[in-house]
Computed example of a mutant assay.
Amino acid sequence: MTGVMKNCIESKLTLRERKKEQTRRALARAAAELLLLAGDEGMTVAAIAARAGVSTRTFHNYFPRREDALIAFLETTVAEFAQKVRQAPEGETPLATLHHLISERVGSHESGSPDTLLNLMTIGDHLSYTTSPEEREQVRHLLDELLDALHRRGGGRLTRHATALLLGSALTAGAIAVESAQGGKDARRLSPWVLAEDSPSTTELLDAQFTLLAEGFGA
């Protein structure tokens, strides 16, 4: 086989692999969007396939069930988060990196994008109710790559337990900021007294939350 022919075959394989990955991602995102727009009943395999522009047979070539598509969406999103952590400026603290990362993802349930913080949490909640114990364990470990990236960014100054606490605190700070800014209409996880009628903007609330995390609560 000549070198030219070999390169042509490898290019075709790479193109085929890229197209397969694009289809997989399109199906995963379509499932996430439909869950948020139409709920569990509207998130049928047929609807997911139609939204992604493929047949139901193609859907099953990639995923056994709709929940697998949702898990794939979360996997891809978390992988993107981890990559951003690894690419953050040298010397930036894990907390500062999380602040930037979460700032990019704040948004309401009505935004239409499955990438917002609250919508990602909604997808996670749905999976916790609709999957088997083994699958829930898989979902629980979705954050492992992100935790590892944060732990490495800390340069050994944070233990693995401290890294997990940092990530959990940052995600909670983001959720509080978004829900408070919306006047409590999405307050499903927080006590009513946390939510003020006349709250500052989401960005202001988020900055204040991360200042508390950085400086401590003085309690």
Rank of each mutant, 00 (worst) to 15 (best):
A69G: 08
M1S: 13
L101S: 03
V78K: 01
R189L: 15
T202C: 15
D115I: 04
G112V: 08
Q182F: 01
A38L: 13
D115S: 13
G184Y: 08
S111K: 02
K19V: 07
V78C: 06
H141V: 03
D115L: 14
Q209P: 00
G39Y: 10
G183V: 13
L150Y: 07
D207H: 09
L146S: 02
L190S: 09
Q209F: 10
N61W: 06
A26V: 03
A219F: 07
A46S: 14
T2D: 15
V106A: 02
A26C: 04
L213G: 04
A28E: 05
W193G: 00
L195K: 10
L120H: 06
V106C: 11
L74S: 03
S191E: 13
T2E: 10
W193H: 13
I123M: 02
E75G: 08
H161C: 04
S199T: 13
H100K: 12
Y62T: 00
E197K: 11
S108L: 01
D186F: 10
L190W: 09
A30V: 03
V178N: 01
D40Q: 14
A69S: 07
A196I: 06
M1V: 13
T172D: 11
E179F: 00
V194Y: 10
P200F: 02
R24V: 00
R189V: 09
A26H: 11
A49L: 07
A30S: 14
R66H: 04
T202N: 00
I71G: 00
L158R: 13
F73L: 03
G174P: 06
T23F: 06
A170H: 03
T14L: 14
R189E: 03
P200W: 02
L95S: 11
E137N: 12
T131F: 04
V78Q: 07
L147G: 09
L70R: 03
R24I: 00
R153D: 07
N119M: 05
Y62G: 05
T44G: 13
I176W: 02
S55T: 15
A88Y: 06
G42I: 04
A175L: 10
G53S: 10
A162Q: 15
L205Y: 02
A46L: 11
M1L: 12
T163Y: 09
L205C: 05
T130S: 14
V85H: 05
G184M: 04
E21M: 12
F217H: 09
T58W: 02
L35D: 05
G174Q: 05
L98H: 03
P133V: 06
V4T: 11
A52H: 05
H100G: 15
L120V: 01
E10M: 14
L13H: 11
G39E: 08
L158K: 09
F63E: 01
V45T: 14
G183K: 08
R66D: 05
T159D: 04
L147V: 11
Q83Y: 07
R65Y: 05
A170Q: 04
V194C: 09
L34H: 03
L213A: 08
L127K: 01
H161I: 15
P133K: 08
L34S: 05
V45E: 08
G124Q: 07
P94Q: 10
T58H: 07
